Deep mutational scan, measured.
Amino acid sequence: MDEEYDVIVLGTGLTECILSGIMSVNGKKVLHMDRNPYYGGESSSITPLEELYKRFQLLEGPPESMGRGRDWNVDLIPKFLMANGQLVKMLLYTEVTRYLDFKVVEGSFVYKGGKIYKVPSTETEALASNLMGMFEKRRFRKFLVFVANFDENDPKTFEGVDPQTTSMRDVYRKFDLGQDVIDFTGHALALYRTDDYLDQPCLETVNRIKLYSESLARYGKSPYLYPLYGLGELPQGFARLSAIYGGTYMLNKPVDDIIMENGKVVGVKSEGEVARCKQLICDPSYIPDRVRKAGQVIRIICILSHPIKNTNDANSCQIIIPQNQVNRKSDIYVCMISYAHNVAAQGKYIAIASTTVETTDPEKEVEPALELLEPIDQKFVAISDLYEPIDDGCESQVFCSCSYDATTHFETTCNDIKDIYKRMAGTAFDFENMKRKQNDVFGEAEQ
């Protein structure tokens, strides 16, 4: 370990593993360490099931009705991949897709007046949907046509809207959309967690709705994908990429100290040895004095023996409960997957309800979601602090990732990755940087 590296990475969460992969592909010498004996950090999948019970201090362990412990891979952080989103792009560019198998999530649902409705995925579904009345549908269709044709580089498509100054509230007004449709559009399509976006320039919202539609167009059922064997497969896929390009991995490796000289990182000390480096990437748990708390998320993992009611017996789905429907500031989400994804025993389902904490009784906040899941065989409640770095790391060369937020997709995580890359490399992130180099010394032969 007593060696000189360009970059040392602490923690094998998804953000850290993707950055480690990119740095290795770009010719950097990388050492990647984790104090845990497993990959994934906060974003790991726990197996066998006995391990999950232990982690949540349920000492009696799983009953026999849960089947074989080894058949379970339970995500600690519930997220899906947008089919046309940035993480899929990263997987394709790096060819990490060859280590993973994905399934399309069967449906996306939205909560309205105590019931759940399928988010329409085709024009026919939209016309048949009970989510809105006849005239509302016509106006909504006009709005969707506007979004589909919108091109930020072609003012002819703006229809009198200025993407940089017109607020989204004004765009909704222009198409005369009612409150329910606005809730549905902002939260189930643009996937905002709160209503803060309404008074911001509309460009980002329009682009988010386009991303949803384009992702949906790829597979038809929903815009989301999920990897077989759980999300823990993602960091491992990128760790393989890093290793192929010469990255060194050490799990179960305690970090005793991060060594600084004149305010700059110069190395990491572990078990009496020092590895030197020019730059350091880590998750917040490794540098508690360089991060601040930015809120909390509650996630309740529920094991069920039945599909969720009114989802047409889907073996995977997402449910969004827009905040307006339950008098909150932030949406509540449910991600459900099952034995069909090799993450649970035969006939079992895993539904994870999550939201940003707003009160001193977080469990009560998630109740509307839990009511949709009854009866629940077993619950595991996790309340996590969200951390963000206190500075950009440019001076110390210590670059810290943000905690995983309450969103049900990876777009915010990818933004964090691109942002850290830019601060480390001094140049904007470009997907081309992730391409495997042809015929290089570490390149794998085609399968």
Score class of each variant (00 low, 15 high):
A406R: 15
Q236K: 00
V297I: 07
D180Y: 07
P120Q: 00
R139L: 06
K418L: 02
F175S: 03
K103G: 13
S20P: 01
R240L: 01
P375L: 03
Y404N: 13
F146M: 03
K435M: 12
Y172S: 05
S24H: 13
Q279G: 04
L14T: 01
D440F: 15
E358Q: 03
I77D: 05
N149T: 11
T360V: 13
Y249N: 10
G426R: 05
R436W: 15
A239Y: 05
L19V: 05
H187Q: 06
E271L: 09
S316I: 03
P322F: 01
E95A: 13
N439H: 04
L144S: 00
I352G: 01
L251R: 05
D283N: 07
I298C: 05
R70P: 12
L203M: 02
P227L: 05
G246W: 01
K29Q: 00
S43N: 07
F143R: 05
N310T: 06
S316D: 14
D385C: 11
V145E: 15
R173W: 07
L76I: 14
N315K: 06
E125L: 05
G114C: 08
T412I: 11
L52I: 04
K253G: 15
L58S: 11
D392S: 02
T94R: 06
D195S: 15
L228F: 08
P288R: 12
S285V: 06
E4Q: 12
Y286S: 08
I244D: 15
K103I: 09
T412C: 15
Q323L: 08
E233K: 02
V110K: 11
V105F: 02
N84S: 11
S242F: 05
L81S: 02
S121F: 08
P155I: 09
R208C: 08
L211S: 06
V357I: 02
Y117P: 06
K156A: 14
K269T: 12
G114I: 06
V104A: 09
Y339C: 11
P63Q: 14
A188V: 04
L216T: 11
V266M: 10
E411A: 08
N207F: 03
E16N: 02
R240M: 00
E367K: 07
F146C: 11
C414G: 07
N315M: 14
R55L: 09
S403L: 07
E271M: 03
F429C: 08
P163L: 11
V25F: 14
L100Q: 11
K118C: 02
H32I: 11
G85D: 10
G426D: 12
G295W: 13
V9D: 03
H409P: 07
I390V: 10
M336V: 09
E367H: 13
L231Y: 05
V171A: 09
L92S: 15
T412P: 13
D151N: 09
A275Y: 14
D2W: 01
C394S: 11
I319T: 00
V357R: 12
G426I: 14
E125Q: 07
G160M: 01
S167P: 14
L370G: 04
G11V: 01
A345S: 07
R193Y: 15
A345E: 14
T412R: 11
S384W: 12
C302H: 12
P375R: 00
K278N: 10
E271A: 08
Y245H: 09
K89Q: 06
Q279H: 05
P201S: 09
G443L: 15
K435A: 14
S24N: 05
E271D: 10
N262I: 01
E3K: 09
S401E: 04
T412K: 00
T355D: 15
G107E: 15
Y5K: 09
F410L: 10
C277F: 02
T407N: 05
I376G: 01
N415H: 11
C335R: 01
Y99I: 04
L280H: 15
M23L: 12
E261K: 10
R436D: 15
V441I: 08
S270Y: 00
E444L: 01
R35S: 01
P163D: 14
S65G: 06
Y172G: 14
L211W: 07
F431D: 04
Q200P: 06
V119Y: 03
K364R: 10
D331I: 13
F380Y: 06
Y172Q: 12
I182V: 10
T205G: 13
G11R: 02
L304A: 07
K418E: 10
G230C: 02
L198R: 06
S285R: 04
L234P: 02
K137H: 08
G107C: 08
T166S: 03
V25T: 05
E395K: 04
G186Y: 15
S108F: 02
T12V: 06
R218L: 09
I337F: 09
E271G: 10
I77K: 15
L211C: 14
G85L: 10
A126T: 08
